[in-house]
Simulated scan of single mutants.
Amino acid sequence: MFYSYQYSRPALTVDCVIFGLDGENTLKVMLIKRKLPTFEGEWALPGGFVRIEESVDAAAKRELKEETGIENVFLEQLYTFGEVERDPRERVVTVAYYALINLQDYAIHADTDASDAQWFATDSLPPLAFDHGQIVQIAIARLQGKVKYEPIGFELLPQKFTLSQLQKLYETVLGQALDKRNFRKKILRMDLLVELDEMQTGVAHRAARLYQFDEQKYQQLREKGFNFEI
């Protein structure tokens, strides 16, 4: 049955802020270069319009895969952006997502309406299309807040890591130095790391012990009210 709505309906899009940590402990965001108008040839977050038959979650996963080749990552809703003139084409509301990945696990490539895809350091981003600069800054603030009370930072690390790598991760995300002794005491006291019978290889300095994050144990403790706090 045809139904005519009394009010005009805005278009709905999704945008994805994907964070990664490179080998030099630089926090990066993945951007695509737009192939189509508007803002053709400019850098932007991967994303696009939500199809009428799909959810916003499904649209975010689809757009991320189509434009960058990244898939099977956990995306969490960040915020809804609905300023009236945020898109010069028409009235558009976007639901933004963010995710954290290990750069070494994903080879990105541009596709569909993206002519290029690259990683950029969060402190040296190029001018971004639409209001994507604002979206990135809000995503960084969310990451800095959430990494303190949920172990999401482990998503940025290799599966096996050293305590120094873990500390550097938190220092990079939070933008501040942490006392080595206090950090290690706090993180080890949580008993969420599995000490491996393995050492670093191929390093110029003294090889350090490798660890793994025990996701299953964390979930069990969380159900009992465990409080993760850095």
Results as ranks from 00 to 15, higher is better:
2 F>K: 07
3 Y>I: 13
4 S>P: 12
7 Y>H: 14
7 Y>G: 15
8 S>A: 14
8 S>Q: 11
12 L>V: 02
13 T>V: 11
14 V>H: 06
15 D>C: 07
20 G>C: 00
21 L>I: 05
22 D>L: 02
24 E>Q: 13
26 T>D: 12
29 V>T: 03
29 V>H: 01
31 L>A: 05
33 K>N: 06
35 K>S: 07
36 L>T: 06
40 E>C: 06
43 W>A: 04
44 A>Y: 01
44 A>V: 00
45 L>C: 02
46 P>Q: 00
48 G>R: 04
49 F>I: 08
49 F>M: 13
52 I>D: 11
54 E>R: 03
55 S>D: 06
56 V>A: 14
59 A>W: 02
60 A>C: 01
63 E>T: 04
63 E>R: 06
64 L>Q: 02
65 K>P: 08
65 K>W: 15
66 E>K: 00
69 G>K: 06
69 G>E: 00
69 G>I: 04
71 E>I: 05
74 F>C: 10
74 F>H: 12
74 F>L: 11
80 T>G: 10
84 V>G: 12
88 P>G: 00
89 R>C: 14
90 E>H: 12
90 E>G: 15
90 E>I: 02
95 V>S: 05
100 L>K: 06
100 L>G: 13
103 L>G: 07
104 Q>M: 06
104 Q>D: 15
104 Q>F: 09
106 Y>W: 12
107 A>V: 09
108 I>Q: 05
113 D>M: 00
113 D>W: 06
117 A>L: 02
120 F>K: 02
123 D>I: 04
129 A>V: 04
130 F>H: 01
135 I>P: 07
135 I>H: 10
135 I>W: 08
138 I>T: 11
138 I>Q: 11
138 I>R: 12
138 I>W: 15
142 R>Y: 12
145 G>F: 02
148 K>Q: 13
148 K>S: 08
150 E>S: 10
152 I>G: 02
153 G>Q: 05
157 L>H: 10
157 L>S: 06
161 F>Q: 04
161 F>V: 05
162 T>H: 01
164 S>P: 12
166 L>N: 02
167 Q>N: 08
169 L>M: 09
170 Y>A: 10
173 V>D: 04
177 A>R: 13
178 L>F: 08
179 D>P: 01
179 D>Y: 03
182 N>V: 10
184 R>K: 15
184 R>T: 01
185 K>H: 13
186 K>S: 14
187 I>W: 00
189 R>Y: 14
190 M>V: 05
192 L>F: 05
193 L>G: 05
194 V>F: 13
195 E>H: 09
197 D>T: 03
197 D>R: 05
198 E>S: 06
198 E>T: 07
199 M>P: 09
201 T>C: 15
202 G>P: 08
206 R>E: 13
208 A>N: 11
209 R>C: 10
213 F>V: 05
214 D>P: 03
217 K>G: 07
217 K>P: 09
217 K>F: 11
221 L>Q: 13
222 R>P: 14
230 I>G: 01
